[in-house]
């Protein structure tokens, strides 16, 4: 179970949220731009340090004190694929598996290569592949380590609908296989709805509404949320 109470001062407001997610559960963080959604993920991942609060996941206390990044069983995917440009696609994906992956891990890599359509770029340098391929590789790299907690920070921004659909389908299949807990941040409701039945809505760093998508659609807590949920 993830139990995260996060306090983090930003320039205009303080992020103050308390999230609880059951094991293998998922949650969408929804809201307008600059409401503290990414800060929440960044604090759970350990990229940023909260100013206060308590973050526990499973039997681990992630904060305080801050647990070193390499000891966190977390997969973190952002808009930027952040691939290692000096390595091939294969070595990027196998990066978290150590120097000599086991037979089981190799089978796992083969599955990822197949399901994410990476066979034709498998041996290519990561610096030479397209943006869409890079996103797939970043997803495969994150999944290869079979994380217990997956944090997705608008990983589909700027991608065409077909690719977004493929990545979401792939992600859901792997979520079922691995059974990880997942938090997804996006400002597009239809993407979040595909990935998680539950949502927490943030405004100026506070959770203003939490529940299922049906509940939020039925009675949006604020006018701004109502506008955000309206289709264009």
């Amino acid at each position: 179970m993830l139990d995260a109470r996060i306090l983090k001062r930003r320039r205009d407001f303080t992020v103050d949220v308390h999230l609880k997610i059951e094991p293998a559960g998922s949650l969408g963080l929804f809201g307008a731009s600059a409401t503290g959604k990414s800060t929440v993920l960044s604090c759970i991942a350990g990229i940023e340090q909260p100013d206060g609060g308590l973050i526990r996941f499973g039997g681990l206390q992630l904060f305080p004190p801050p647990l070193p990044l390499h000891l966190r069983p977390i997969g973190y995917l952002t808009q930027e694929p952040n691939l290692f440009p000096h390595l091939t696609v294969e070595h990027n994906i196998a990066f978290g598996l150590g120097r000599h992956p086991t037979a089981k891990q190799n089978g796992w890599l083969a599955d990822l290569r197949q399901s994410l359509g990476l066979a034709n770029v498998w041996s290519a340098p990561a610096a030479r592949i397209s943006g869409g391929q890079a996103r797939r590789v970043a997803l495969a790299r994150m999944l290869a380590r079979r994380p217990s907690l997956v944090l997705l920070d608008e990983p589909f921004t700027g991608l065409d609908r077909q690719l977004v659909r493929e990545l979401i389908e792939g992600l859901l299949v792997w979520k079922n296989n691995i059974g990880f807990t997942m938090i997804v941040v996006d400002h597009q409701a239809h993407i979040l709805e595909r990935l998680s039945p539950h949502v927490a809505v943030l405004e100026r760093g506070q959770v203003i509404q939490q529940g299922t998508w049906e509940e939020v659609h039925a009675a949006p807590a604020t006018d701004l949320l109502k506008k955000l949920l309206d289709p264009l």
């Binding site: 990229i47 390499h70 952002t78 290692f84 978290g96």
Partner: peptide, 20 residues
């Protein structure tokens, strides 16, 4: 962020240095 990503992939600081 590349170094942080490497750490989140389970690599301790000295391996992040040598590999990234």
């Amino acid at each position: 962020m590349l170094e942080k990503q490497a750490a989140l992939l389970g690599q301790p600081p000295w391996r992040v240095f040598w590999r990234v």
